[in-house]
Design a protein around this nucleic acid. Structure first.
Lengths: 152, 152
DNA sequence: TATGAAAATATTCGTTC
DNA sequence: GAACGAATATTTTCATA
């Protein structure tokens, strides 16, 4: 689907705040309410907008200990990769996991309460997964930017 | 604010899909519509829920080239840190930037179109920031999990 | 693409526990 | 203080032009 500049603006606006009403959007985009409605429906249908979610403050829910964990597997066979990946999917603490190039195979983003909870997570959950060669954890000590927006 | 188990369930539900209506939520939580409404308003007021956003498919908007860039500064003075951080905030390509412990000072999550666009970003934007000592880029070659949900 | 009616939803209010 | 149902306001949805 080809996106015109109104679509891209709409996408950016909805990424910033999806609770804007169609009327508010219509004013920002110089369109009628129905036109906004139709465009959003189309973006949803085409799976350009995949879903809507509430964002929360990790501190307020006792999950302010954020860790980036770099994981290397002992070998890169298809079996090893898929076993690792299916295990990771089941771990609530892991909000993101990407297969990456470079020194490590995976980068994981992990939210826990504190170091003690992270230790338990590592010992009981992560490193109990087979085929993990090594891990390297980077602890978040400050948030400069934490957006879910992809500017288009 | 103390969260009971209904609040945590509500938070998880809204992180998964914030377009659920209060009626749907009331059925899932065994509450009245008004009670759901009041609880959500409270979570918003207390800034536990900070905002609502649409999530999009990076591929469909030509931003499927995701890079984790690890940045080391030449020195850790307050001035260097704050100059770097204020510059980063202005870069649309950088969706996330965290100050971290370990071998590198910062981890950046960067969305661009392709390698060529990344090269331009590095040359013209990132490495033009003063005080950057070294960078190491990891290119995403697969998404195992990409959630914004923090399970509470 | 726009208008406006109909349906669904969100919000407010008075009351109860 | 939290929950409820009824009322009112707002928004979404959809038929029609």
């Amino acid at each position: 689907m080809k996106l015109d500049h109104i679509d891209t603006k709409l996408i950016n606006l909805l990424q910033e705040d999806s609770k804007r009403t169609n009327k508010q959007l219509s004013l920002l985009l110089n369109l009628s309410v129905t036109a906004v409605y139709e465009r959003i429906k189309k973006l949803e249908k085409e799976q350009i907008i995949t879903n809507y979610s509430a964002k929360i403050d990790p501190q307020k829910v006792d999950k302010s200990f954020l860790v980036f964990c770099h994981v290397k597997l002992i070998q890169h066979s298809r079996e090893y990769l898929s076993v690792f990946e299916s295990k990771i999917l089941k771990l609530d603490e892991v909000s993101e996991c990407f297969h990456v190039s470079g020194d490590y195979d995976y980068i994981l983003k992990i939210y826990v309460k504190d170091m003690e909870e992270y230790r338990e997570f590592m010992v009981n959950k992560l490193t109990s997964i087979k085929y993990i060669g090594s891990t390297q954890s980077s602890f978040m000590i400050g948030t400069i930017k934490n957006s879910t927006k992809i500017v288009v």
